[in-house]
Design a protein around this nucleic acid. Structure first.
Lengths: 228, 228
DNA sequence: CGGACGCTTCGCCACGCAGCGAAACATTCG
DNA sequence: CGAATGTTTCGCTGCGTGGCGAAGCGTCCG
């Protein structure tokens, strides 16, 4: 949640028109997990020919929503940055009738652990964040959420590679399925990627769901993180 | 910031197309301060004839972005709810080149105190939030930010009508000009409206800027809120 | 070197829709 | 009741743009 620089009508309209086409929307949504995908794959995801997809991708690129990486004869597109992903996520909020059709929907795996762009969300993300707050390992100030020294130490001794060179700040991120906050922002991303490195979490081939490893669950449990 | 229910391409595209027209964007932006405005005024703000505006307003209404209130021969439109305002604000973030063109822009009044939809933002909002956190009057848990009893007491004794019947939860909201968090969500809205009632703050006829009263500044100063 | 592949550019068609003026409808006021 | 005002509905025109196939261009591989 943010208050924002005053957009003028043309900037807002331009942004809207980039989203206004189902084909472009499909391509953006296919990239919300943070992956980079070649143009052909995005064309297929959107259900259009490569020719049409190419035009759409250029518009999104020119609009600053996508970034391009050329690799041989493939051209990999990804979301320009985390703010674009955050914007897409936040758009969904205006579409949700507040409390409707939420709880039991989606598969159980997705509810338990998933990525919210680049950080951990779902029951596990909420429980992890609750523990950090509960044990006073996480403090809040006006710059955001930040690990206290005690938190850095305990996470590190659990096997998580936590960098304390520059203090990273996170932000609270309301969890879609749990209706509680979890940890997002740079700090959330850093801790989540440390969990990947330590093999506490594994990515699944498709979708946003994540698979906690047995070791990861044991380590988290030792920290006091329980899934009820 | 939120992770979101999975929007499909058509929902996202529909939402985008509602924003994609400068006329509609202008009308939405004119309503971001939370006011209700008659159709004719919105037509004028968008620079189109009433006939065209009527069609746009209907689309926005059908799309769930606006709410309508009929009063005599006037029809007052306003943003459907706070989530719509939040969405519009968050859209601006994707347009801002991270750290550009921010600090000195806009007038000083707007930077000092303004409304972020319905709650207080700007230097004053940030300072107020920092004080609440600093004095430990505000706690954070997984449901959000919540006043502690000591905080309720001290605010009340300063003359702010703080209701403690049901604990209100706020959320952190990144301040556009200050790059620090301030207090948003239901709690932020409640405290801000209490400040209006206590005449600590006054609305200005136009725009989002707010005018703190002399008494309000004195009371806030007594709480420890300073604008440096 | 030549074919396969990935992607882009080009030219074309067709649909959607924003815009307006005119007219209809509703409400208020004299 | 009739005029004035605010808003909507209707019919129309013109522009923007999404879609495709065909062709062009770079890259990889045998």
């Amino acid at each position: 949640m943010n208050d924002a620089a005053p957009l003028n009508r043309y900037q807002l309209a331009e942004l809207g028109s980039l989203l206004a086409e189902p084909a472009r929307a499909a391509m953006l949504l296919a990239l919300t997990d943070g992956t980079s995908r070649p143009a052909g794959e995005l064309a297929q995801a959107a259900g259009i020919t490569p020719a049409t997809a190419s035009a759409h991708l250029h518009r999104l690129l020119a609009g600053g929503l996508l970034a391009l990486q050329v690799q041989g004869r493939h051209r990999y597109y990804r979301l320009a940055d985390e703010r674009v992903a955050a914007m897409l996520e936040s758009l969904a909020l205006a579409r949700v009738p507040a409390l409707h059709a939420m709880p039991a929907k989606g598969d159980a795996q997705l509810r338990r652990a998933r990525c919210c762009y680049r950080h951990l969300a779902g029951a596990l993300g909420v429980a992890f964040c609750a523990t950090l707050l509960d044990r006073d390992w996480l403090q809040i100030d006006t710059r955001g959420l930040c690990l206290r020294p005690a938190g850095i130490e305990v996470l590190r001794s659990s096997g998580l590679a936590v960098d304390d060179a520059a203090p990273l700040y996170g932000r609270s991120c309301l969890d879609w399925t749990e209706r509680r906050m979890h940890l997002g922002g740079p700090l959330g991303v850093a801790l989540t990627s440390a969990m990947f490195e330590a093999d506490w979490l594994r990515r699944l081939p498709r979708g946003r769901a994540l698979q906690p490893s047995a070791d990861g669950l044991r380590r988290l449990g030792a920290l006091g993180v329980s899934l009820d």
